[in-house]
Amino acid sequence: MIARIWKGKTKIEHLEEYTDFMKVRAIPDYAQVDGFIKLTFLKRIDKDYAYFELITFWENMEVIKGFAGNNFEKAKYYSEDKNYLIDFPERVTHYEVFAE
């Protein structure tokens, strides 16, 4: 199993709207991919920003390539993300899960 980790940041005033967007748009999108296992979506705030960390779990790297393309380390964004995110990290990180 492979974990794919993405991090993002919004203004605090966009926290709830972006959270709702991810629940309605992104999570169902991941879930429909054959070979997707599960995800964990984390959020936290400080005095200035809301931070997100998305950890998706996939059967193997071939499944991830099917989802993200051959440049699988490149982050995948939705057109609506420009309404919420402050920056757009170009890369995600992958880890092999060896224990749960």
Rank of each mutant, 00 (worst) to 15 (best):
N70I: 05
K23A: 09
D87K: 04
N70W: 11
R4D: 11
P89E: 09
K76Y: 14
I86R: 08
L54I: 03
Y49N: 06
G35R: 07
D48S: 04
E96K: 15
M22W: 05
E59N: 06
V92C: 10
R44A: 14
Y51G: 05
L85I: 03
L54A: 08
F52D: 08
Y77A: 00
E90C: 10
D34Q: 11
E100N: 09
K76W: 14
Y51K: 03
T40D: 13
V24W: 02
H94Y: 04
G69E: 02
Y49K: 02
Y30F: 15
D87Y: 14
R44F: 02
V92R: 02
D20Y: 07
V24M: 06
A31Y: 01
E62D: 14
V63N: 08
F36R: 01
G66M: 02
E16A: 06
A3M: 13
K47F: 11
W6G: 02
T10F: 09
I12H: 11
Y49F: 15
D20C: 03
V24H: 07
P28Y: 00
L85T: 07
G66Q: 03
I27P: 01
I37F: 15
E100V: 10
T56C: 00
K7R: 14
I37T: 04
Y51N: 07
Y30V: 03
N70D: 13
D46T: 02
L42V: 04
Q32G: 02
A26P: 07
K43N: 12
E59A: 04
Y78A: 08
D34E: 10
W6K: 02
E62Y: 05
Y49I: 02
K9V: 04
E100W: 15
E17S: 12
L42W: 15
L15S: 10
K11C: 09
K76M: 14
V24S: 07
K43E: 10
Y84R: 13
M22F: 06
D46R: 01
K9F: 12
W6V: 01
L42N: 06
I2S: 04
K47G: 06
A99H: 15
F57A: 01
W6Y: 14
K74C: 13
L54W: 12
L15Q: 07
F67S: 05
L15F: 14
I5P: 03
M61L: 12
A99Y: 15
I64M: 12
L39Q: 05
I12F: 07
T19D: 13
F67K: 02
K9L: 04
N83P: 00
S79H: 11
F36L: 08
A68I: 10
I45C: 12
I55C: 13
K9M: 06
E59I: 03
L39G: 01
Y95I: 00
G66T: 02
A50M: 09
T56A: 00
F88R: 00
E73V: 11
T40W: 14
F67D: 08
R91H: 01
T56E: 04
R44N: 06
H94L: 10
